[in-house]
Design a binder for these strands. Structure first.
Length: 505
RNA sequence: GCUCCGUUGGUCAAAUGGUUAAGACACCACACUUUCUAUGUGGAAUUAAGGGUUCAAUUCCCUUACGGAGUACCA
């Protein structure tokens, strides 16, 4: 790539950033970094009606949490700002004017009501109303009206929009980096509005103007934009600009059922659809986020990278740097991918196992202090080392290992019934004595003492080991019993056995 | 409806004009921990259908079916 790569992620701040949006951002980021390029965040807020406070900050926070920060954007000014379209308002009109002057665009006065009427009317007849070559001369615009009329209406302050005049009888050959050649007959295109009556450009105009002004080399966006590609290319052509390369990413679909992944799927199936928790300022409704649910950003990124892309090797675990090195647009899939929450958990579990015990312990300490448990970092690290392999999330650690911090207050009924028999109490009394006599209280000595005692008394392991576990844990789970005993200490071990004898015998 | 895009196990997916059509998740079984996980081993399961082209098609072409997106003065 000879020119400096510049890509952009251009969301509109209409709510929290959806996981599909995060993936689009990720692929842009990976592509930029792979080619030593620049990753830009541009806020597309040309529709003032849909503006949601906090949404922009949410987008910025999400990208930062995912560790895919943008190089240029709001608050990180480069040479191409501002990066909010609402702040670039004055830039667009000149280009709409230029299009008007070159005959590629025209004024249109048709009211929204009238257009709605046409659409309904056509629909009733089983047809589709398209504002384009076959009817534009019959509608209320500068193509059908005299120059004087047009001027008069504008001078009178009448509302108008500027529409693109789509060319006729042409077959366009569009290039997509993922899909290859796409042919479009220009006669099916409609004359899209470029400039709205409120003085703001539409997405289409603002988008290509900014991409040009910001020297964007590659437009990597969701497949929902594919139908607009012809318009955009035509716009570049009409303005006499170089066309960037385009790549349309496959959509992320619902895990079950039909259609695009939506906010509701997450609620229904119990997994987050957003990177960060979001509270809707209007409804006060809270949507869960990956961060708050305990996912590590590395896991989310790794999972997202594999949705619609793969390296063609058997490697599945990738660090961000490895993703950058391996990423290739041509290896992006064409078909939409169903989202799999289970696989996300698998990635999460993997990254948690890989995470540093000190880090996990630190996070876990926060949870413990919420439960008013006083302990030491050293002790928590020991516990983490013993139980983390059973955990997917840090929050699992409590259910997995609460007995390291407090004696069981109840005993699993099934296990007690199965493991605690009539003579168990007597046996356990003897076990206390055996344990008490162990001088060096480490796993090896303890194990030798207890197992030796079992063997020489011909008791059978199950008769001792199971009640012992039940005494210490309260249930039939957890790591090696001797490790548990060593960790909680001799005194506590004996104390718990005695307690179990009192309760269960 | 129309336009465009797509279709390999339940899901994510690799590969090639000639292979036993990888691998992962999930599922099942077994082993290992005298517990629960984790792990290991194995199993079941796929080229949407029908036509061509070809010695040979999952791969190239066509049709059908199915899925998706778009069809706004929203992005």
């Amino acid at each position: 790539m000879s020119q400096h790569v510049r890509v952009r992620f251009a969301p509109s701040p209409t709510g929290p950033l959806h996981i599909g949006g995060v993936r689009t951002a990720l692929f842009n980021y990976l592509f930029a970094k792979k080619h030593g390029g620049t990753f830009i965040l541009r806020i597309e807020d040309t529709d003032q009606n849909r503006y949601v406070p906090g949404a922009e900050q949410y987008i910025v926070d999400s990208l930062d949490w995912c560790a895919i920060p943008f190089d240029e954007g709001p608050g990180r000014e480069g040479d191409f700002g501002p990066y909010r379209q609402s702040e670039r308002k004055d830039k667009y009109y000149a280009f709409a004017k230029a299009l008007l002057a070159s005959g590629n665009a025209y004024y249109a006065f048709d009211t929204a009501e009238k257009l709605t009427f046409h659409r309904k009317d056509h629909e009733a007849k089983g047809k589709t109303f398209i504002y384009n070559w076959h009817n534009r001369l019959k509608l209320d615009n500068s193509l059908s009206l005299s120059e004087d009329d047009v001027q008069k209406r504008i001078d009178n302050g009448e509302d108008y929009v500027i529409r693109f005049k789509a060319p006729q009888d042409e077959t366009l050959h569009l290039q997509d980096e993922i899909r290859g050649d796409i042919q479009i007959d220009t006669n099916i295109l409609d004359d899209k509005v470029l400039f709205k009556s409120d003085g703001m450009p539409t997405y289409h105009l603002a988008n290509i103007v900014d991409d040009h002004l910001m020297k964007i080399t590659h437009v990597i966006r969701g497949e929902e934009w594919l139908p607009s590609l012809a318009l955009h290319v035509l716009l570049y052509r009409a303005l006499g600009w170089d066309v960037p390369k385009f790549a349309h990413l496959p959509l992320i679909l619902k895990p079950i059922g039909k259609g695009k992944l939506s906010k509701r799927d997450g609620d229904k199936l119990g997994f987050p659809v957003f990177p960060l928790q979001w509270e809707d300022p209007k409804t006060n409704e809270t949507s869960s986020g990956y961060r708050e649910d305990g996912y590590l950003p590395e896991a989310v990124i790794n999972m997202l990278a594999f949705l619609g892309w793969n390296p063609g090797t058997e490697q599945e675990i990738f660090s961000l740097q490895e993703l950058i090195d391996a990423f290739d647009l041509t290896r992006v899939n064409k078909a939409g991918a169903k989202f799999d929450p289970e696989k996300t958990k698998w990635f999460q579990q993997h990254y948690l196992q890989k995470a540093d015990n000190a880090f996990i312990a630190k996070e876990f300490m926060g949870l413990l202090s919420q439960k008013s448990i006083v302990t030491t970092t050293e002790y928590v690290e020991k516990v983490v080392a013993l139980i983390k392999e059973r955990a997917v999330f840090i929050s699992d650690l409590w259910n997995l290992g609460s007995y390291f911090f407090q004696a069981p207050s109840a005993y699993d009924e099934k296990a007690a019934k199965k493991g605690w028999k009539e003579h168990t109490g007597d046996i356990m009394k003897e076990v206390i004595t055996v344990i008490d006599q162990v001088k060096v209280f480490d796993s090896k000595s303890l194990q030798e003492a207890v197992k030796g005692w079992i063997t020489s008394n011909e008791l059978g392991f199950g008769k001792v080991m199971q009640p012992l576990r039940l005494s210490l844990v309260g249930a039939m789970q957890g790591p090696d019993v001797f490790d548990i005993a060593i960790t909680i200490g001799k005194e506590e071990t004996i104390h718990r056995i005695q307690k179990a004898i009192d309760h269960l015998s």
